[in-house]
């Protein structure tokens, strides 16, 4: 049994290494579709949003401080580029315990981005992540262009660059 642990570690390292190779290919695949409710209790289906422009999805929660630090930047980005087709979905992972505070938090901060609630944490399982914030950028067809775990100040610039590259009129200018 003594050699079992190194063996298991070796298998895990191999799997994770293989996963790293696969991760490079993750971008380009379609995002799993989902239907959740927004703060106005309306159903929002991801695939219904395709076609208008890039979609930024961020999984966050009230107990997650990096998430709360990222939200104002996402909101700013949404206000700046919504007319050019950007859609931002901030998906709250708060459990039923904190669900009632999500609306008051968002409204008190006057955020304009669209907030969805996922108190059963279906999206963290769909996207195979155990850490939040988890951010995804999809192109207008619904294919994953970028995904990232965590947030530190400065990373919003990277997001903005990717979003800019996907906005309709940016692409039209490049074609012109």
């Amino acid at each position: 049994m003594r050699f079992l642990r190194p063996l298991v570690v070796a298998v895990i390292v191999l799997l994770v290494s293989y996963g790293s190779v696969c991760a490079a290919e993750k971008e380009g695949r379609p995002a799993s579709d989902f239907t959740l409710r927004d703060l106005g209790n309306k159903k929002v289906t991801l695939s219904d949003l395709y076609g208008d422009g890039p979609i930024l999805i961020s999984l966050w929660a009230l107990w997650c401080r990096p998430c709360l630090e990222e939200l104002p930047h996402l909101d700013k980005m949404y206000r700046e580029y919504k007319d050019r087709g950007l859609q931002v979905l901030a998906v709250s992972q708060d459990s039923p315990r904190s669900l009632n505070k999500v609306k008051s938090y968002i409204k008190s901060r006057k955020y304009a981005l669209r907030v969805l609630t996922d108190s059963n944490a279906d999206l963290t399982r769909k996207f195979k992540t155990k850490l939040i914030p988890y951010t995804l950028i999809l192109d207008s067809e619904g294919d994953i262009v970028y995904s990232r775990t965590g947030y530190r100040k400065g990373q919003e610039k990277e997001l903005e660059e990717i979003v800019l590259g996907l906005l309709k009129d940016t692409q039209e200018h490049e074609i012109d």
Partner: peptide
Amino acid sequence: GAVSLALDHVGISVE
């Protein structure tokens, strides 16, 4: 039971 009220720059939650 839960009530959530959003006023201008103020959010109130009572449970």
